[in-house]
Design a protein around this nucleic acid. Structure first.
Lengths: 192, 192
DNA sequence: GCATGATTAGACCAATCGGTCTAGTCTTCT
DNA sequence: AGAAGACTAGACCGATTGGTCTAATCATGC
């Protein structure tokens, strides 16, 4: 079958969904295969069919998926933004809303899921690559808004560093206000 | 015995040491009791004598210890600082050096160790309290340098948010340069 | 020196871990 | 219809998990 044509998510997608959610909440080592399988409603055999290397494979797929989601939100936020600050502000508010939806707290930042894991080197590399993809996306928007390439990259990095730390604190405090206050923290009071 | 008088670290201290290091590297769920016990050279019975609630107890003790270490570095950094930026810069460089020492990469930030764990609520609260203690310490130095209390708290929070995110990125990239570049990122090029 | 509580020592346990493997089903092509 | 491969299903495995419990050892009071 070239095209599934069925709208309901296939086995593979359901696995990634469940894994993403659970890893985000309990971390890689904190989540058992049994849990993922139960939530996805998928037997063990299927997991090892779609992800021959097992849990690690699944985690990488989940990380890639969540990174692409982040990029999507980023693109959304900058679509109609007149300048950098507006784009960033919209992004922070969108993510704050998401934070509130995700049962308001216990979920790791963008993909903090990737730090434990057995062969740490593979995970680390994967996380770094995913994060760089996100930074690049933000920098692209900066350039489109007239920033010099070097400046855009620098601002994108700085912002996402702040955002990661902000998400961490928001999580600790169970309060998305930290995220909403980020633009003001980083760029001072709004000019307007 | 009121005073141990022996310089070599006691059983309890050795446990906390080993736990701190291992949790930082592999996370809470990623570290087995056996590993900790082996590294500390302590039998299981002793662990449950000193930490009746087991692993969770030990993790909280480790978190408290590391938080107090951070405050110590913070105090050190601000001791001779003429202004906020200097203090912060010294702190970043000290921590960057530490980052390089800790086998250059795989170790969680200040106490990222606290996010998994069984009864998440207890862990989360503990982490939040520890982080607030660190923020308060930084804010105190800000005030001592003449900042208004509200401003000091705000700057302390903002800085530590950035620092957490920076440590995360440094870890992903295995490069402490991110930490050293933080003051410039947050406060612009040095006035000098 | 003897009794007492603190501490160490590690055998032991059920539960769970990630992973393997065989059997069966379902889809699709000829 | 029938063969072939994709996929599902779950029993099963050895290893390891955090935790309990009993016995031995240690220090310190009388």
């Amino acid at each position: 079958m070239l095209l599934p044509m069925t709208d309901e998510p296939g086995t593979r997608a359901r696995l990634i969904n469940a894994a993403t959610r659970l890893f985000r909440q309990r971390g890689y080592d904190g989540t058992g295969l049994a849990e993922i399988l139960a939530e996805a409603g998928v037997p063990k055999g299927s997991l090892y069919h779609h992800f021959p290397e097992g849990k690690a494979d699944l985690a990488c797929a989940a990380a890639d998926w969540i990174a692409s989601e982040i990029v999507r939100v980023l693109d959304d936020s900058f679509r109609a933004a007149p300048d950098w600050r507006h784009g960033v502000t919209t992004y922070c508010h969108k993510m704050a809303k998401l934070f509130d939806i995700l049962n308001s707290a216990d979920s790791c930042p963008v993909f903090g899921l990737l730090f434990d894991g057995p062969d740490q080197e593979r995970f680390r590399g994967h996380a770094a690559a995913a994060f760089d993809r996100i930074i690049a996306a933000a920098a692209r928007h900066g350039e489109a808004l007239g920033l010099a390439p070097v400046t855009a990259l620098d601002m994108a990095e700085t912002f996402l560093i702040g955002f990661e730390g902000g998400w961490m604190l928001a999580r600790m405090r169970r309060d998305s206000a930290v995220l909403r206050s980020l633009p003001k923290r980083l760029y001072g009071p709004p000019a307007s």
